[in-house]
Simulated assay, not measured.
Amino acid sequence: MGRGRAKAKQTKVARDLKYRTHETDFGALAQELHGGESAEDELDPVELDKWSDYVDPRSARD
């Protein structure tokens, strides 16, 4: 027992995904796929310094 509720929820989610229309931002998708601005450019230097101790020194870029 217990499988019925899980299956019903999965069916509901699958139906929602199949029949609901979603607004797609094709401009953002194209920018992501074609390598728009990199995410590293948007990072705060203070935040990067806070986490720099966790970087593997062997993987550091020159």
Rank of each mutant, 00 (worst) to 15 (best):
G2D: 08
L48K: 03
A30I: 02
S52Y: 02
D41P: 00
H22K: 13
T11M: 02
F26L: 13
A6T: 10
K18L: 14
D25Y: 04
D41W: 06
S59N: 04
R20K: 11
M1A: 14
D16I: 09
D25E: 04
Y19L: 14
D44P: 01
S59L: 10
V55F: 00
S38I: 00
A8N: 09
A30W: 03
R58Q: 12
V55I: 01
Y19T: 15
E40Q: 12
A39T: 15
R3Q: 12
E23K: 08
D49H: 08
G36M: 11
R3L: 09
R58N: 11
E40S: 13
S59D: 05
K18Q: 14
R20L: 10
A39H: 07
T24H: 11
D49I: 15
H34W: 09
A28P: 00
K12T: 06
V13A: 15
D25I: 05
Y19H: 12
G4L: 15
A6M: 13
A6E: 07
R61E: 13
Q10R: 13
W51G: 02
D16T: 06
K9S: 05
A60I: 03
T11E: 08
Q10E: 13
H34A: 08
S38A: 06
D44R: 01
D44F: 02
R20F: 07
V55G: 00
E23C: 04
D25A: 03
T24A: 04
R61V: 04
E42K: 13
A30G: 02
G36Q: 09
E47W: 03
V55P: 00
Y19G: 07
D53Y: 03
P45N: 04
D53C: 01
D62W: 04
T24P: 09
R61M: 05
A8C: 02
E23M: 06
V13W: 14
A30Q: 04
Y54Q: 10
T24D: 03
T11W: 02
V13C: 11
A6Y: 05
K9Y: 14
K7S: 14
K12D: 09
D53P: 01
R3D: 13
L17T: 03
A39Y: 08
Y19K: 08
Q10H: 11
P57N: 01
G4Q: 15
T24R: 13
L48W: 00
K50R: 10
T11D: 07
E47K: 01
R3Y: 10
Y54T: 12
G4T: 09
K18Y: 08
Y54M: 10
Y54K: 14
R20H: 09
